[in-house]
């Protein structure tokens, strides 16, 4: 691509600045190689550009950032409540989690009709049960480790709402195990069956 001298002259500043896109950059480079006038112009422009770039950079007042954030907070607070809540991503995420949990809890309560055991060992202690919902990011290995730690076995689940029914070791205190599960990072919900 042979570039007319006038065109190369117009593009030379951006060639010098390194912001000329292809194929213009290559065309200007080729022209400059063969044009004495443009070579001198390029050298001169490089000095001008270096001088402009080396200027001291003024800074805004250090407290300006805090003032902008304060205005941002005031502006966010000025909208209707639902917009304010929705505006903040963290609040949206929390709201979504709360909705999922509320639905799971409601489903749990509705479906919570204790069934009589199919059979019971005569004279022996009966096994207690706990219902549990794991967090969505819980891995199979993590869940297994949690179950081994509290001495529980999955006997049902997961249901549509993600609820597992756990059978505890005979003699285990279901309240204590449920509490232990609630303190587990992988568990979202745990409740002993009545």
């Amino acid at each position: 691509m042979t570039l007319p001298h006038e065109t190369a002259e117009l593009l030379l500043p951006w060639f010098v600045a390194g912001t000329l896109p292809e194929p213009e950059r290559s065309a200007v480079e080729e022209h400059v190689r063969d044009c004495e006038v443009c070579r001198r112009e390029e050298a001169w422009l490089r000095e001008v550009a270096d001088a402009v770039r080396s200027r001291p950079v003024p800074s805004p007042a250090p407290e300006l950032g805090a003032r902008v954030l304060a205005r941002l907070a005031a502006r966010t607070a000025a909208g209707p409540w639902w917009q304010r809540v929705w505006r903040v991503r963290e609040a949206r995420a929390l709201l979504a989690v709360a909705v999922v949990e509320a639905v799971a809890l409601a489903a749990l309560v509705v479906s919570w009709t204790p069934q009589p055991p199919a059979f019971r060992t005569l004279g022996g202690p009966t096994a207690a049960h706990v219902q549990v919902v794991f967090r969505p990011d819980a891995t199979e290995a993590g869940m297994r480790a949690t179950l081994l730690r509290v001495g529980a076995t999955v006997v049902e689940g997961p249901g549509a709402t993600g609820v597992y029914r756990l059978r505890l070791r005979p003699g285990s205190d279901p309240r204590a195990v449920a509490e232990q599960l609630r303190n587990d990072a992988l568990v979202r919900f745990a409740e002993p069956e009545p």
Partner: peptide
């Protein structure tokens, strides 16, 4: 630069100081 008309000075500064392409 100070003696350039503002619209011309602005283009020089945007190109050389801020590194913007002509587009």
């Amino acid at each position: 630069l100070k003696r350039l008309p503002p619209d011309q000075r602005e283009v020089v500064e945007l190109a050389f100081f801020h590194g913007f392409a002509y587009e």
